[in-house]
Write a protein that binds this DNA or RNA. Structure first.
Lengths: 303, 303
DNA sequence: CGGAGCGATAGACATTATCTATTGATACAG
DNA sequence: CTGTATCAATAGATAATGTCTATCGCTCCG
């Protein structure tokens, strides 16, 4: 069965005349006659009672009409909805973001995203790196903002760097290192506090100060916010990402630039075959633009 | 857009695999690939994210899925409903019947019709001849039981005689003619009562007794039932159709066979192009069979 | 690095739709 | 009652579309 023939059928019902129905459908009258006959053969039902004067739908035809109209309407709605889905810069866009980035980056990019891509409905999803990779692969996310990778160790995923985020030394006010203008990464190694496992920042912070393992004990913060509170309370030092500087200062923490300028690169990652690459790149561009010049200021301690 | 392609789409969504979906659809894998691509081009939307491992529907595709399923379901329902409409001996059958026949014939044929054509839903419609012709022509009726015609004066209609219905003289008990065994039609002419205009029986009764006009006054019965009451009350005589004999006797009327055996032929009439001719003929056959042998008995006064 | 699995592509072929021209039936006017 | 007009049906040619087989290119995996 063909939707075209169903439209022919409706046209004949509406006009009660093969010739005029054909004209409306943009085909010749014989075409309509033939197709209607085929439809009748397929359905096993006579659809019209034809005379040289009138073409009247049979009772069977009338019984079918609602269903026919339903099918045609559904088909039309497919076309209509598809038309609304054509724009790759419109509709849902599920963006994963790591927890050490989300609370500090999102407030900065929401407004620019809304301005630059008003039709794009960006839905943020906060989760740790490994989980974001999973969700990317299972098509639950369209893209993710991560601080890892960049190499080609994920062949099915593509990424693009958006901005560099320097780390900053975070010290309790009474800490000896707080007296210095610049802090060497290695000097933090001794009493550094880190996030719980699974946070990429944990590994990066340890790597930056030259430690391979983590310090023991229960003092592994589950969130960066908790970590800041712990530092402020004098439990130790830490490295924080540049965008968290404001929150750290609010917590009463002393910030110092790092001697070797350790940091991380925030990248946007997506499936290589994701068809709305333009949306990914548009979102990436908005973020990169918003964060332009941030790295230098943050690294220099200018918050 | 094509329903076939929508089914292909659903198969790919269901199986997440072009090859298996193709197998299910009974076509080759390239066919499916091509048709899906065409559909994507038509809709302007990428429907699947393909890798060598997986075929995942895009968000746009998921947004469309409900509508696609709706269209396919509607198409299937067309086929299903049509299947139920295939039998010409099933479904609605609107049968017009003239008022001087309906109340006496219907009780006789309901049971046989239900037995012989259990799936046929015969809907009787009582109206005068002219009105039945109109409704036949406007497709409001599928067939009609009439006592007129039979010739080819209605080129767009066809008819078939079902049974002969003799007229019977109906007399008040005290009427002089009631003394006779057989009444001559002409003897009724003097004080015959007839139905109001529009009833074919009126003209036929007048013609049978050799009168062209009707008798004046307010005594034109609107229904045969009224006419019988009037005769019983002694207002005059009349000719009644044989099937009404029972009702006439119940009213206390004396019945006598007619000398010249005047009568009418009941025919079933339908549009020449009506596609369910088999249904018409089946109904006609049931009626004719039920009334077989009736004419002789009625004419002889054996009720 | 080679084979297996998968979707995409190319080109031949088959099916289906559509067209023009015509027929046959019917209604209407002279 | 005959010619004309109208309409759907039919025939045959042509165009459009779908489908097939064979093959490619990519990716993953041993």
């Amino acid at each position: 069965m063909n939707l075209r023939d169903l439209r022919y059928l409706l046209a004949v019902v509406e006009h009660g005349h093969f010739g005029r129905a054909a004209e409306v459908c943009g085909v010749s009258q014989p075409t309509l006659s033939v197709q209607i006959r085929k439809l009748e053969a397929l359905l096993g039902v006579t659809l019209f009672e034809r005379t040289s004067k009138t073409v009247a739908p049979t009772i069977a035809c009338e019984r079918l009409l609602d269903h026919v109209r339903g099918a045609v309407a559904a088909a039309d709605s497919i076309l209509a909805v598809a038309r609304g889905l054509r724009d790759p810069l419109a509709g849902q866009f599920r963006l994963g973001i790591i927890p050490t980035l989300a609370p500090y980056l999102l407030p900065l990019i929401f407004a620019p995203l809304r301005e630059a891509l008003p039709a794009l409905d960006v839905e943020p999803w906060e989760d740790q790196t490994a989980s974001l990779f999973e969700r990317l692969r299972s098509h639950e996310l369209d893209a993710a903002l991560l601080a890892t990778g960049g190499s080609n160790d994920e062949p099915d995923l593509t990424s693009q760097p958006l901005f560099a985020e320097p780390f900053i030394a975070a010290l309790p006010p009474e800490h000896p290192l707080a007296a210095r203008e610049v802090v060497a990464e290695e000097d933090l190694a001794e009493d550094i506090l880190v996030l719980s496992e699974g946070h990429c920042l944990r590994d990066q912070a340890l790597a930056a100060c030259g430690r391979s393992g983590a310090m023991g004990g229960p003092l592994r913060a589950a969130s960066l916010s908790t970590l800041l509170n712990m530092v402020a309370a004098g439990y130790g030092t830490t490295l924080i990402p540049g965008l968290a500087a404001g929150a750290a200062q609010d917590a009463g923490i002393v910030l110092r630039p790092l001697a070797a300028r350790a940091g991380r690169t925030i990248r946007i990652v997506w499936r290589a075959r994701f068809p709305r690459r333009v949306a990914v790149e548009a979102v990436g561009k908005v973020i990169a633009t918003r964060l332009r010049g941030f790295a230098e200021g943050a690294a220099a301690g200018t918050i």
